[in-house]
């Protein structure tokens, strides 16, 4: 086949389109995958957890996050817009007074922070909070 300028252009643009299609939904799907791996695909209830996060975080390097999940044995936090969605897992021992804790996390961009709580009866509860991030916190 004789490669003309026109053919090369057509070839280039079609491979580019393919690449951009496959790479687009990468972040969203990994969070869902991680949640599915954690819960084993169980149905997620809502309402039992309170997730406290600021509506707007000026600095994505330290975003204060707090949760309160009465009756939970384990709480996992996810940030669905981060390069790695997992944030932290809290396991509560016998001397823990309340199923609540607070910490500071990094957020790369404006996104949802998701908390998944494993309850004492083995069911799962979820809560979500959207945080607008002015300056992202994952470095260049």
């Amino acid at each position: 086949m004789e490669l003309t300028r026109r053919k090369i252009l057509a070839l280039g643009s079609s491979t580019f389109a393919l690449a951009s299609l496959t790479s687009l939904p990468v972040f969203a799907s990994t969070t869902d995958d991680e949640i599915a791996a954690l819960t084993g695909g169980a149905e997620l209830g809502e309402g039992a957890i309170t997730l406290t996060a600021p509506e707007i975080a000026e600095n994505g390097n330290t975003v204060p996050i707090a949760f309160d999940a009465p009756g939970a044995v384990e709480v996992t936090l996810f940030a669905d817009g981060n390069p790695v969605p997992n944030v932290a897992t809290f396991k509560f021992g016998p001397l823990s007074a309340s199923r609540s804790a607070s910490t500071r996390i990094r957020l790369a961009t404006t996104q949802d922070v998701v908390a998944i709580a494993k309850m004492e009866d083995g069911s799962f509860q979820t809560a979500k909070a959207n945080v607008k991030v002015t300056i992202g916190g994952c470095g260049g």
Partner: peptide, 24 residues
């Protein structure tokens, strides 16, 4: 010797990791 809290940290935890929690 009895556990209060056990946290697994990922890189998304900020510099100078801070935790607040309650114990009996």
């Amino acid at each position: 010797g009895q556990n209060v809290i056990d946290v697994t940290l990922e890189p998304a935890i900020s510099t100078n990791p801070y935790f607040q929690f309650e114990a009996v």
